[in-house]
């Protein structure tokens, strides 16, 4: 058990180091940091002095170690444009993205999994066919189009929901939440649905096909032949086995919900890290870009780690060795 977790954690660290290397190389190869720091009139000597004092003349590995050391202490430098600490910009922006993503994930899982189970168990019902045809919309329409459609219908035509922003937020310590005000909640609805729709249909179709596969398995047939009730067979035997492969894909999808919030945030002008990243690209704000990269990578790595551990608890084939062969 411990060695399994340890191995996974070590692997995660290696991945993070690789991402850090890419993120670090942005500084070195995309533009000259000194040029962004000093005015046009600065003399070459002054530039060289600055370069020396910032340690930019040190060998790349030394600089990299320094970069990683600072990153571990959550020090990511200062934004070229906003002249503020990147860490505090992100701390300001992150709650918005996390609230949006987590709500989307809950919608995607909460509707996707039951819908998948329903359509697998009732293959021939008209409702299943309806769900499946409807899900094609979710898969085939691009996210921004759905967002714009929603805005057109609910904001422009019916004027029910705000078309942009987070509404009023309440500050709880460092965390700004939109969940406690009516306008904050209203503002959250459309972006969350927009972001969830694609993942939801994907999870539903995945659960459905996995479950159909499992229902054909010999142990399900044998369970039925032993006279176990449909309830036990479907939920005690089939569902658990369905979830084993679903967990992996779902984990990866949750990571991408956070990562691909960029588009939704742009459409709804949601003040999260995605929007921040788009602005940073426009302004060639390297520290912000590289920090965003590190942030998203760490989300992916953490989610994957959790998925691996979940796997370990769900599937006894990983947990328990083959034991004695009698």
């Amino acid at each position: 058990m411990i060695s399994y977790i340890l191995a996974r954690v070590l692997q995660s660290l290696v991945v993070m180091l690789c991402v850090a290397a890419i993120s670090f190389s942005l500084f070195t190869y995309v533009g000259d940091p000194i040029a962004n720091l000093v005015g046009i009139q600065s003399s070459d000597e002054k530039r060289e002095e600055l370069r020396e004092s910032l340690g930019l003349n040190d060998p790349a590995p030394v600089q990299f170690v320094r970069f990683v050391g600072r990153a571990v202490q959550l020090e990511f430098g200062i934004s070229y444009q906003q002249k503020r600490k990147v860490a505090s910009i992100i701390a300001e922006r992150l709650p918005a993205t996390l609230e949006l993503s987590i709500l989307s994930a809950l919608i995607a899982l909460g509707i996707g999994i039951p819908a998948g189970i329903f359509t697998a168990l009732n293959r021939e019902s008209w409702f299943s066919h309806l769900i499946l045809s409807g899900s094609l919309v979710g898969v085939s329409l691009p996210t921004f189009l759905i967002g714009i459609l929603l805005i057109f219908i609910f904001s422009v035509q019916f004027q029910l929901l705000p078309s942009f922003g987070r509404g009023e937020v309440v500050q709880l310590g460092f965390w700004s939440t939109g969940l406690l005000t009516a306008s904050g909640l209203k503002a959250l609805i459309m972006p969350a649905i927009t972001l969830a729709l694609f993942q939801m249909t994907l999870i539903m179709r995945l659960v459905r096909s996995e479950m159909l596969e499992v229902l054909r398995a010999d142990y399900i047939k044998f369970a039925r032949a032993r006279g176990l009730s449909n309830r036990t067979v479907h939920f005690g035997y089939a569902l658990m086995n369905t979830l084993v492969p679903v967990i992996t894909i779902t984990g990866l999808q949750l990571g991408s919900i956070i990562a691909f919030a960029i588009i939704t945030e742009t459409v709804f002008q949601w003040p999260g890290v995605g929007l921040m990243f788009i602005q940073a690209i426009n302004e060639v704000d390297i520290p912000v870009m590289s920090t965003y990269l590190l942030l998203i990578a760490s989300f992916f790595v953490i989610i994957n780690l959790v998925v691996d551990l979940l796997y370990y608890f769900v599937d006894p084939r990983l947990r328990v060795g083959r034991g004695v062969r009698a």
Binding site: A217, D218, Y219, K221, F222, A223, R224, A225, R226, G227, L228, G236, Y237, M240, N241, V244, V314, D315, P316, R317
Partner: peptide, 21 residues
């Protein structure tokens, strides 16, 4: 009746049992 009065055994013992229980 299945299981109570008529039992069944299938071919492949490797796949006849639920791997998670």
């Amino acid at each position: 009746i299945r299981g109570r009065h008529i039992g069944a055994i299938f071919q492949d013992p490797l796949t006849s049992l639920n791997p998670l229980h």
